[in-house]
Design a protein around this nucleic acid. Structure first.
Lengths: 213, 213, 213, 213
DNA sequence: GATGAATGAGGATTCATTCAT
DNA sequence: GATGAATGAATCCTCATTCAT
């Protein structure tokens, strides 16, 4: 008759499990509506055990939303800093990478949470601004500016151009997060990346000369 | 005995006042964290009075988030259905109109709220999908398809192209909503619209022929 | 078929009822161990209703322990300030009044609570110090000093003499509060006041023979 | 490999260390508000280790408050039972001893705790009643009765007279415990003992002239 | 219609206590 | 014996909602 222990010491494994469960629940319900009880349940421990690792709900939220996007951002920044590639290659690779990153629900719902709770958690918004969004935007702007200097890209505000590049991928991700569950037509982010690359590289309009030709 | 001006206000004005206050509070705090007490305070009446007009918090939220975007959407759709304009004109006008609409905090925060609460309120996400986003997207896709038929726009998936058009404006709006309060550099949506139009119309890349020339 | 209303508006009556119930429970259990639920029960309302009148447990405690002793103190101070009475009369009357005041459980348990919780609620200790104990002590010291000046009372530190006067009454009250419930022999405070007066009178008074001599 | 000095401490020292820490914490916070964690910290061991020595918080409290006053009581009782001393000497010595005992914070805060928690822990109140207070009171009453029989002390209820003797010292001790931390003027217990002795001596003693007469 | 008063149902947090190591 | 990890049972407090007026 083996005794089934009520619990087992799992000090090192626990924080990860809790954060994973918390990410799920926060993503599903939002910060305020998320119940520690549900997080605890999904993490397979008791409500009180969460307090062994985090002093309160807010800190848990911070830990969950904190820096999780960093790895993805590193990859994208790395691509953009590959200075010797022609800009077209850079842009295509970057969009493809974004499509990939945004296809996984993790980063996507994280981004949605930042949008949702940023007002109530200014430090989290700031964390993401400083650590994620502003960094990505800066890397992209710099790459564009370099390409302009090389004569590959037309003149214009590089920061706004960077928004032109990223915007549709973000919109696609949010669409998947918000509209698809509400019955919206799904979007293939990879296809979007390809189509958007074509648009951004050469424009939508057929040139008059071409038409003329 | 002079009549208290509070009581002269027509009864019919009340729902509008409540919804305005509610929009503010929901936008600032999110659905779950918004308190009816605060809404009532801002609307200048008592918590209980809200229940005269709305059966509960959720219905109030629905009323607030429900159809508010419709007028803006109508304008945009109207532009897009002006069939006889060259696509370039359409796109420029539409982007300018979006910049304008997103410059006012109302629509912007509404959009953010839909993103934030869509998961918890599928019907609201659906309402926005059906009444706002999908309609706008459809109108834009149709305009693109017509332009393709006229030979003004290169071949490609019109829906994805529409996302390329809208995405950056949405991103800009969310940036203003979420990142600027957290210390992010502001964005001029009008400038973004112009720059994005240029990008989308002719692309970022300088053509080899042009370079050669 | 008369409906039995779940509750009735009692705005003005309520605070008093709540404080009475709270005094009981705080006195029985101490601050930390007192449950709002029990207070609510005894006051005949719901836990949440307490929060209509007091923002939290601590404030309720403050309200309960705050100034309740003031009336009794006024009486005692009034006696002591009757400057034209011989000191022996003053002392006898004051001790009798104290016996009376401490015979009612209200003030007695309040005093015990101040002793019990003073460390955890410094402001309450201070409130009692400033409003009750120090005032009484000062009034008594002043009366003694005046009596010394009149040659009725032997020389000596009036403040310490005042403690000699009050101490036994306080001890008697605490005995009733603490030891009697634990099986201690009861004490008749009135008898104690009389006996203590006799003890103290012949010790403080300069003997007639001595004065005569 | 040097032995960690922590482990050299003899096991038997532990209960004492725990009780010392517990006394501190119970005195500072009261029973209910005292946290085992804080006691453990101050005792330099883990919360769980306390359970090796005491089955629960209540028992620890009992152990702490239980018999600690006994030595002091013994001294006082011994003085009082020195039957051959004149009562004036007895009283003076006893008051001086009380002043001394109450000048140390240990006994003083213990007394305060008994007053504070007596209601919630009747057995502790009883323990103190039987082992400390009633014993002291009985010894003192007996001494007074003997002095009355010897004609040194005026007639009257010896028990009430004993309260007259002890009361001011108790009040002084409580003042130091409760009011001084709240900004009250300090009291010199030794001076109080002297002054109170003077007050009480000339009041309790049958005057020489009277005896002579 | 309007509101102040009241409440029930919850949810975060705390802490004495237990258990596996 | 000692402890870090874990938990269950509270308990405070909040807030949407209801009701008598």
């Amino acid at each position: 008759m083996t005794t089934d222990p009520k619990w087992r010491r799992r000090k090192t494994a626990r924080p990860g499990e809790i954060e994973a469960a918390a990410l799920e629940v926060f993503a599903e319900r939002g910060f305020a509506a998320a119940k520690l009880e549900e997080i605890a349940e999904r993490a397979g421990l008791s409500k009180a055990a969460i307090y062994v690792y985090y002093p309160n709900k807010t800190e848990l939220f911070r830990a969950v939303v904190g820096a999780r996007a960093a790895p993805d951002i590193e990859t994208i920044a790395a691509i953009l800093e590959t200075a010797d590639l022609p800009f077209a290659e850079l842009a295509r690779a970057m969009l493809a990478r974004m499509a990939e990153a945004m296809s996984r629900p993790g980063l996507r719902s994280l981004a949605r949470m930042v949008i949702a709770e940023g007002r109530n958690f200014p430090e989290i918004a700031q964390l993401w601004h400083d650590g994620v969004v502003a960094r990505a935007l800066a890397a992209m702007s710099a790459a564009i500016a370099r390409a302009q200097a090389r004569g590959e890209v037309r003149p214009g505000n590089p920061r706004l151009m960077a928004l032109s590049l990223i915007g549709p991928m973000m919109l696609g991700a949010l669409w998947i997060e918000v509209m698809v569950p509400a019955g919206g037509e799904p979007i293939d982010l990879t296809a979007l990346a390809a189509e958007h690359f074509a648009t951004v590289a050469d424009g939508l309009l057929i040139k008059d000369e071409a038409r003329a030709a």
